[in-house]
Structures are given as C-alpha cells and as structure tokens.
Design a protein around this nucleic acid. Structure first.
Length: 278
DNA sequence: ATGGGAAAGGAGTGTTCCAA
DNA sequence: TTGGAACACTCCTTTCCCAT
C-alpha cells in the first residue's frame, strides 16, 4: 500500500504489550501520590516514580500516551522515535477542545511522560532479549515545545508563567525500550476509534489491558479482584468500592463490543473478575 | 456525578468460665 | 482435662454522607 494513502487509514494503535500489563496511570485522580509498586505474577518488581514535585501520571496522561502511539504508528514508526505536532492538532485528535486549560494540561502531561521514572526489576519484558529486564526508563526520552508565533518573544520573557496556556509546536521522542518492543512485534493492538468511544478512563484502561490478554487467553479471562485492582491500578481496597468503580466500566465495555461479558463474582471469601472475550 | 472517608454492620477468632 | 456457651475484640466490608 502506498505510504500516502496508508497514513490516513491507520485506525489501530500499537502499544508495547510488556508495558500494558503493568500499572502506570493512576485512574483516580485525587489519590495519594507516593510511588506506585507492583509485583507481577511472574516475579520481579515494578515501580513508577513521579518526578520530584510532580504527581504520578493520571487519566489525561493515559490518553496522551495512547495518542502518541497512535501518531507513532501513523508515521510508520520512525527509527529515531521522533514525533512532531502542534499542541492544537494533538488536542483535537484526542477529542478535546483546545483552550488555555487543555494546552496547560497537555504540556504538563508530556513533561510528566518524560520525567516519570519507570523502574523494572525483572518485571518489564524485553522482546529483544526474550526475558524480563532490569532497567529504568521513561515513556518519552525528549520533549521540546516551542511557541507557535516567534513574534511574541518579548512577551514570553516578561510573562513566562503565561506560556503554559498557549499553543505551540512539539517535538517529542519515544523512548528506545518502547520502540524496541514495538519493532519486535511485542504489541497490543487496539482500535483507535473504539478507545475514543469508551468515555471513562477505567473502561479505557480495561480495554488496553484486556486487548493484550486476549492473545494468551482462550476466550475467557479470570483474575482475583485484588490482583486485578493492583494491575490496573485502582487504589480502592474493598470489593464493594472496587465494584462501584468497575461496574460502570464493565457495562461500557460490553456495550462497546470489547468483551461479551464482564462480571465480578464472589466465591466464598474470594472475589474474582471474569471476562468473556469476543 | 464522583470518590474518599466516617460510621455502622458483620463475621470470625480469641478468651473466659463452667460443667461434665 | 476437655468441650462448649457466652462474651469480647478485632478486622473486614458495606452503607452513608459530604466535599469536590
């Protein structure tokens, strides 16, 4: 297929499957902001460390992350991992309006994706070496945002704090570990439009996670509720609280055709989540 | 509408006491 | 000494309320 026509037809997003099965984005925004820790079933340890003075990536950051990988795929996965775009067009494809508030959110999110440390101790699977790896990395290895109009230089100098609310041109670089896994086809494939249609952050996260698990599961997936909560991650501790958050998202996933059914089930003292895949 | 936390409601477990 | 009833205590879970 010629490149020019392919570009407009990309409707899928390729995500690093190793990263998808690990918790990263806080789904409840107002939760406490320590580091996030997780011990995968296969052993090892995973930590997400916010940059000093910053919080952990949240729901907005999740959408930015997906849109970045959408564009990476659309650009035919450039070898250097570089992406350029205007903040305005980026917000529009995310389905957000572009105003002072969202420009600021987007800048903060890009900067968080560059500065949040992901620390793997035999937790994140490296497709290149065929084994879980021990390393620290970030989602973006570089972020540069320049003012849209060069003419406003003096104003910029006078009111540096105002510039966070303004449009601009961004150039970002997707970090090498993610690119390596994607290049090695160790990916989760999701539909960009289906992701957009799910209008809850929890449903979107469940979609990303389940899309990766579908590859290994034979039509069904089942997990202990508390482990599931850690993997997403959700901070709620008790089944009733988790149910309150998951139930609406489950209904959305069924309505959106992502899964055939989704349920939370109690068996004696144990709570389980159960999904029947499409 | 949402989600965090307080208050209230269990369920399970440990302790004491008494009778066999 | 053992079994079990009655009570107490703790931890867990749900429900409710309130701030955002």
């Amino acid at each position: 297929m010629p490149l020019a026509s392919r570009r407009s037809q990309v409707t899928t997003v390729l995500l690093d499957r190793a990263l998808e099965v690990l918790p990263l984005f806080r789904l409840s925004d107002s939760a406490d902001d320590g580091a996030l820790q997780y011990a995968p079933d296969g052993g090892g340890r995973w930590r997400v460390l916010p940059a000093p003075g910053d919080r952990l990536p949240g729901t907005f950051d999740q959408d930015v992350y997906v849109e970045l990988l959408h564009r990476f795929h659309e650009a035919d996965c450039p070898d250097d991992g570089a992406l350029t775009f205007t903040l305005h067009s980026f917000l529009r494809t995310m389905g957000r309006k572009a105003d002072g508030r969202t420009y600021e959110q987007l800048r903060a999110a890009l900067s968080r994706l560059e500065r949040t440390t992901l620390e793997s101790t035999d937790a994140w699977f490296s497709a290149a070496s065929g084994a879980p790896a021990t390393l620290s990395f970030t989602i973006l290895s570089a972020v540069v945002i320049e003012r849209r109009r060069v003419g406003d230089r003096e104003q910029l100098a006078l009111f540096p704090s105002l510039t966070a609310n303004e449009p601009g041109d961004a150039r970002v670089v997707l970090s090498p570990p993610l690119r390596a896994n994607i290049a090695a086809q160790h990916v989760t494939t999701i539909s960009w439009s289906r992701y957009q249609q799910l209008n809850s952050p929890v449903a979107r996260r469940l979609y990303r996670l389940l899309a990766g698990l579908r590859v290994e599961s034979a039509g069904r997936w089942r997990a202990p509720l508390d482990r599931w909560a850690e993997q997403l991650p959700l901070s709620q501790r008790y089944p009733s609280h988790l149910q309150r958050v998951l139930q609406p998202a489950h209904e959305m996933l069924v309505a959106g055709g992502v899964v055939r059914s989704a349920a939370i089930r109690q068996e004696g003292r144990e709570w389980w989540v159960e999904y029947a895949m499409k």
